[in-house]
Design a binder for these strands. Structure first.
Lengths: 254, 254
DNA sequence: CCCCTAAACATATCTAGACATCTACTTGAC
DNA sequence: GTCAAGTAGATGTCTAGATATGTTTAGGGG
């Protein structure tokens, strides 16, 4: 080691920083293969576990992706699904400045895969939100959204089972206009929505269901739909691949 | 090992699953210390690195937190600050001279730490959003928000340097009502906002600045403020500790 | 009683090597 | 020419240590 350089930083962090810098400099582009473990061992004169630890640091950051038997690759962010809370015509006026994160997912809409509809006792939080007694039966509709055959979101919708019995909401195909149109048919048209947004690391089950590589968080969106008289008629819990979505909300200063 | 149970699953995953189950069962509560590496070595008859790998899996999930020299502890989620997209920005609030962050939290206000104001060439995306030529000079205000002396957000605000020259916006203390009240003084009152929300794992620098433990993502909120004539006057990039915040948005059906 | 120090303990880093499993490519048989 | 088997190489898992560094606690000195 030449002179008293920064020995404070662990070897694996310095290797990781060097790789990161090489990626940032464009030496390795998205999808490119990085030098392998054995190559790093030779280049930096470290043991294999140390080289692996460097890769682990980059994986945790979501920068690279290891494919067993193949190598470690710079991750490519195809991304760019833009989920708007409000679809308004005013977009032309207010959109003049352009979006900060130019997501070019124009026209590419995710495909919907229906996972089933069932009746179950409501989770406590859902029952409370819908104004139902604890343990009330709710109708549960589960869907999965795919972009280019890759899952990007899982959505679970909860509705009062008694209210929606015998309607298309209880069927796999909820008909034209979706469940909101059916709720309108019932005189329970949703007119106002509240969305609560969180983010955390996925459970192994979530990572499996969304096909997430390590280093990718999930975004949880919980939307509650209200009728004009202020009653909640639907709770929709969505689990999104954080690397695939940009959420967008617009609102006025009242 | 009794009979031919699931040997397909790696040891470290089974150890991690066992610990996870114990946590879920309440055997270890938030803040409690888990059995240490040497203890796991004895209990499961594995090497140190294998026990460490089990902990690493739980850390990546954000479930536990390792403190060097002390042990591995079940993470305690101090619960979310609620960040509302609408009420928070109500005209009455900042028009009356109150801080927009007074609406945050459950009565507990985050403290604001001012990190400085400066003039710099605008990043390309910011210049485009503000409708300024590439490389135009913008005023950059950086602040950090702390809850119980722990940082939870870093905010960087960009404004046209020429427009805001000589105003309180160029000073550390932007005066009563904050920079939006000052923009209103200039006849550039923001009346509409767009927020774009993403999430990803933090860079090491971000993790350091926010004091994040591994397994905690960041939420990126980019707010653009528009005047009545549709011009963007401010771009505010916020980096949030994902475990500290719940974002909330309300809107009407289109 | 407080402060400082030392020891015990815990995690963090690192090494060296073994076997497992998957991938991509090459080779050979049909 | 096509398909299958074989093989080299890559990451994944696991062991068994050594050394480094931070934390906690117990003890001793002031």
């Amino acid at each position: 080691m030449p002179s008293g350089a920064q020995k404070r930083q662990p070897k694996y962090q310095r290797i990781a920083a060097a790789l990161k810098e090489a990626i940032a400099a464009g030496q390795y582009g998205p999808g490119d293969r990085l030098p392998g473990e054995s190559e790093l061992m030779g280049t930096y004169g470290v043991a294999r576990m140390t080289a692996r630890q460097a890769f682990a640091a980059l994986q945790a950051e979501g920068l690279v992706e290891a494919r067993k038997g193949a190598g470690v690759f710079v991750r490519e962010f195809k991304v760019g699904l833009r989920r708007r809370g409000i679809q308004r015509l005013a977009v032309e006026v207010w959109g003049a400045g352009g979006s900060i994160w130019a997501a070019d997912g124009h026209g590419r809409d995710p495909q919907v895969e229906f996972l089933g509809v069932s009746e179950k006792p409501a989770p406590a939080a859902v029952a409370a939100a819908l104004g139902l007694p604890a343990g009330a039966i709710v109708r549960v509709r589960r869907r999965r959204f795919l972009l280019d055959a890759k899952p990007v979101m899982v959505a679970t919708s909860y509705l009062d089972a008694a209210l929606t019995a015998g309607t298309a909401i209880a069927e796999p195909d909820s008909g034209p206009g979706g469940i909101y149109a059916r709720l309108a048919d019932l005189g329970r048209k949703p007119v106002r929505f509240r969305e609560e947004v969180r983010s955390r690391m996925p459970t192994p089950e979530e990572a499996d269901g969304l096909g997430l590589t390590s280093g990718t968080p999930v975004v949880l969106v919980c939307r509650t739909a209200f009728t004009a008289d202020g009653h909640a008629v639907e709770v929709n819990e969505m689990t999104l691949d954080a690397s695939a979505y940009v959420l967008e909300y617009e609102f006025d200063a009242p």
